[in-house]
């Protein structure tokens, strides 16, 4: 009878199940395919390009992982990025006469980006938690609001950063440390911190508990609303951080900036194995998902595989396959 009770602790390291490795497998296959199709695929230049491009969506998707894990959703991140970029550029242009071109001006711009991101995330979070409106509806609404605001700020055109400021700011996207571009470094840090937070802190555990069953969480002394609010604020801040890395790339923002980023971020989260209905989050999976999405684009550009008209279809097929690889086993179990 007593031998039925397992009394020895499970080893702290367990191999992930085959299904968890699905997205990783898809990523490896894509890399092999890319290398096979084009010699330059594995060149340092191309890898840097792909990783740096992934960085914006990547940071946002890490934040999105927490929101989705706790049972929420945020459709507004793409528009939010455009709005933050617009406000950040306008603020830097406005401060230019008083502050002059210099590092303090750049830092002020970064501060503005983070502050606006925090405020936007707080707005989403409060509407969801305090007003009790469905996250889908709240963020669908704010998506439209942020998008219109940036179009309005830009007068329907493009908001451009002052040329001299841009020259100073440019290296934040284009240069790096030890040959690794800044966006890649920052993305890596965000991803690692996200993974640790999800697996090894109370915040991550609470997100999973709330997504799994918010009533149980409430009965277990978890501040359900507080944690939910925190996920939206965190996501807002990460959108701000992504924008800080994005603006120096082209130095501009317009109504089309960040178009469909929300869907890419959500797709990356789901491809990575986080449950769309919440309750289970996997940050490293999200990173893999983001890389899969940008690699598909990259490979389609590098190899003339199919008519460019069909690029969307190829992407769709790979996204669905990645998810099938991961869930295929479940239905039979």
């Amino acid at each position: 009878m007593a031998d039925q009770a397992v009394s020895r602790p499970a080893s702290s390291f367990r191999l992930p199940s085959l299904s968890a490795l699905g997205p990783l497998l898809a990523l490896i296959l894509l890399v092999a395919l890319g290398a096979f199709l084009n010699d330059n695929f594995l060149s340092q230049g191309n890898i840097t390009n792909v990783l740096a491009r992934s960085a914006f969506i990547g940071m946002i998707a890490v934040g999105m992982t927490f929101v989705i894990t706790s049972g929420g959703l945020d459709l507004s991140v793409g528009s939010m990025a455009a709005f933050i970029a617009g406000v950040m550029i306008l603020a830097m242009n406005a401060l230019l006469p008083s502050m002059g071109v210099g590092v303090p001006l750049i830092l002020a711009g970064m501060g503005v980006a983070l502050a606006v991101g925090l405020a936007a995330g707080l707005a989403n979070g409060l509407l969801v938690t305090r007003a009790g409106i469905e996250p889908f509806i709240v963020t669908l609404g704010t998506m439209g609001i942020f998008r219109s605001l940036v179009t309005w700020l830009a007068d329907g055109g493009t908001i451009s950063l002052d040329f001299a400021v841009r020259q100073l700011y440019r290296p934040v996207y284009y240069s790096g440390l030890f040959g690794i571009a800044w966006p890649i470094l920052v993305f890596a840090l965000v991803a690692i911190a996200g993974q640790v937070a999800m697996r090894h802190t109370r915040f991550g555990r609470y997100c999973e508990a709330i997504g799994s069953n918010d009533k149980v969480a409430r009965y277990s002394a978890v501040s359900v609303e507080g944690v939910r609010l925190a996920t939206y604020v965190l996501l807002g801040l990460l959108v701000g951080l992504a924008t800080i890395m994005y603006v120096p790339r082209l130095g501009s923002a317009s109504g089309s900036t960040g178009m469909l980023w929300e869907l890419e971020a959500i797709a990356a989260v789901i491809i990575g194995g986080t449950a769309l209905k919440g309750g289970y989050g996997r940050v490293w999976g999200t990173v893999v998902g983001v890389l899969i999405l940008s690699l598909i684009d990259n490979i389609l550009n590098l190899a003339d595989l199919v008519s460019p008209y069909l690029n969307g279809a190829i992407q769709g097929v790979i996204i669905v396959l990645a998810v099938v690889l991961q869930r295929g086993k479940k239905s039979s179990a």
Partner: peptide
């Protein structure tokens, strides 16, 4: 089942 335990954890 609904308020006490997280059944999928």
């Amino acid at each position: 089942k609904e308020r006490g335990l997280l059944l999928d954890k």
